[in-house]
Amino acid sequence: MQTLIDRLSEHPEIGVRTRDARIRRLTTSPYPFLVFYEITSDEIVIHATAMVHAIHQACQVPNSPTDLNHTSP
């Protein structure tokens, strides 16, 4: 994570813009994290970090055909 912060300090616009034009998203490697941050006039504000796997799980609809944990009665 420190390497990521150092990289952001050197290249703050490296992340992809999100729907909110102020917020950018950066994917880390080799770890599956997303970092959401904002560039202000004098600092880089990291708003959130999230594991990619957790985001995919949160997007699953319970009892849907794609829910691998679903069992039929």
Rank of each mutant, 00 (worst) to 15 (best):
M1L: 12
M1K: 07
Q2H: 09
Q2P: 02
Q2M: 11
Q2F: 11
T3N: 06
L4W: 05
L4P: 07
L4M: 13
I5Y: 11
I5N: 05
D6W: 03
R7F: 05
L8W: 02
E10W: 02
H11E: 07
P12H: 04
P12V: 10
P12E: 11
P12G: 10
E13F: 11
E13V: 02
I14A: 08
I14R: 01
I14D: 05
G15T: 01
G15D: 07
G15W: 08
G15E: 07
V16R: 06
V16C: 05
V16K: 12
V16S: 10
R17Y: 01
T18R: 02
T18Y: 08
T18V: 14
R19N: 14
R19W: 07
D20F: 13
D20H: 14
D20V: 13
A21W: 07
A21G: 02
R22A: 15
R22K: 15
I23Y: 06
I23L: 07
I23E: 06
I23A: 02
R24C: 08
R24L: 15
R24F: 14
R25I: 03
R25D: 04
R25L: 15
L26H: 09
L26V: 03
T27F: 05
T27R: 07
T27S: 09
T27V: 02
T28G: 10
T28Y: 09
T28H: 09
T28P: 13
S29Y: 14
P30K: 15
P30Y: 14
P30I: 15
P30W: 12
Y31G: 08
P32L: 12
P32R: 07
P32D: 15
L34N: 10
V35L: 04
V35N: 04
V35R: 00
V35W: 06
F36E: 01
Y37D: 07
Y37S: 04
E38F: 04
S41L: 15
D42F: 11
D42K: 13
D42E: 13
E43K: 14
I44Q: 10
V45R: 12
I46M: 02
I46C: 05
I46D: 12
H47P: 05
H47A: 06
A48Y: 04
T49R: 05
T49Q: 08
A50V: 03
A50R: 05
A50I: 00
A50M: 08
A50K: 04
A50W: 02
M51Q: 09
V52Q: 09
V52C: 01
V52R: 03
V52W: 00
H53W: 00
A54E: 12
A54Q: 13
A54V: 08
I55Y: 01
I55C: 03
Q57D: 11
C59L: 14
V61C: 02
V61R: 06
V61H: 00
V61I: 10
P62C: 09
P62A: 11
P62D: 05
N63V: 00
S64Q: 04
P65G: 04
P65M: 00
T66F: 06
D67I: 08
L68C: 03
L68A: 06
L68F: 00
N69D: 13
N69E: 12
N69M: 09
H70E: 05
T71M: 08
T71V: 11
T71K: 14
T71I: 10
S72I: 00
P73N: 10
P73H: 02
P73Q: 06
P73V: 01
